[in-house]
């Protein structure tokens, strides 16, 4: 699965977790914090995304990205290693 598809999965999980963002445009250079996602919700979104693409890695390996595009790239790189 490519980075763009993973980005789409992330958007889907963000909108399931925060229905208030259903109609809010979300771009690759948006950070979750800027969208008003709190730390608990961020964890929920990450775990749900990993489940959706069936990737089992520790959450600590997803630290670092500064926006959703970078996060999608990182998840893509981790899934390619599996």
């Amino acid at each position: 699965m490519g980075s763009n598809k993973i980005f789409q999965v992330l958007i889907n999980e963000i909108r399931l977790t925060i229905p208030e963002l259903a109609d809010h445009p979300i771009a690759r250079n948006d950070a979750m914090a800027d969208l008003g996602v709190n730390s608990m919700e961020r964890g929920e979104i990450l775990i749900a995304t990993l489940e959706a693409i069936n990737l089992e890695i520790p959450m600590t390996q997803l630290h670092g990205p500064s926006n959703l595009g970078e996060l999608a790239d990182l998840i893509h790189a981790k899934s390619a290693q599996q």
């Binding site: 608990m40 964890g43 775990i47 749900a48 990993l50 489940e51």
Partner: peptide, 12 residues
Amino acid sequence: ERPAFIPPRYGH
């Protein structure tokens, strides 16, 4: 069968 995907909110 999939404990790795337990939603974090269950922790509170």
